[in-house]
Computed example of a mutant assay.
Amino acid sequence: MDIDKVFKALADPTRRRLLDQLHSESGQTLGALCEHMDMTRQAVTQHLQLLEAANLVVVVWQGREKLHYINPVPLHEIHTRWIAKFEHGRLDALHNLKQTLEGPQDDNANNKT
């Protein structure tokens, strides 16, 4: 995966909006995507080409229709590499704080009837 292409594609608000549209309804044609954009069909095509180059959008031909689908794998890889590893420390700190404030929890005490 070329991470630079992914970040470049995500840097543009128009491309993020296209991804949002594909997330809400995947498998849209160019015409359907253009309905929600305030730009020419050619401009939308150029944005989609950058999203395809970054592997964020996958195209499937169905007869004469070209359907666009979101590919979440590059986003997941970014999350795993750049976000998830930073969350563990904070979650551990919150868990430790909760235990310190509430004291040790006895599971048997909560199950008494």
Rank of each mutant, 00 (worst) to 15 (best):
D20P: 00
N96M: 07
K8W: 13
L33D: 10
T14W: 09
D12I: 05
L48D: 03
E77L: 12
N71A: 02
H68T: 09
A54Q: 05
N55I: 04
V73D: 09
L19Y: 05
H88E: 09
I3K: 13
R16P: 02
Q62N: 10
H76C: 00
L19D: 04
A53L: 11
G103S: 07
G103K: 08
A32I: 10
L67M: 10
S26K: 06
A54H: 09
N71P: 02
Q46E: 08
A93V: 06
K112H: 10
W82L: 11
R81K: 12
I3V: 15
A93F: 05
T29H: 03
R64D: 14
D2H: 14
R90H: 11
N110H: 14
R90T: 06
H95M: 07
V60Y: 12
D4Y: 09
Q46K: 12
K98Q: 11
R90I: 08
R90A: 06
T80I: 13
Q99V: 11
K5I: 03
S24P: 03
H23K: 05
A53T: 07
S24R: 14
E77V: 10
T40G: 10
T80M: 09
T14V: 15
R64P: 11
G27A: 11
L18H: 07
N96E: 15
K112F: 08
K85Q: 12
A54V: 03
D2E: 15
Q99H: 10
P104G: 14
F86C: 07
P104C: 09
D2Q: 12
E52A: 03
R81C: 07
F86I: 00
R17F: 15
L10Q: 03
Q49F: 11
Q105C: 13
T29V: 07
L22Y: 02
W61M: 08
Q105S: 13
C34V: 15
H88G: 00
H79T: 08
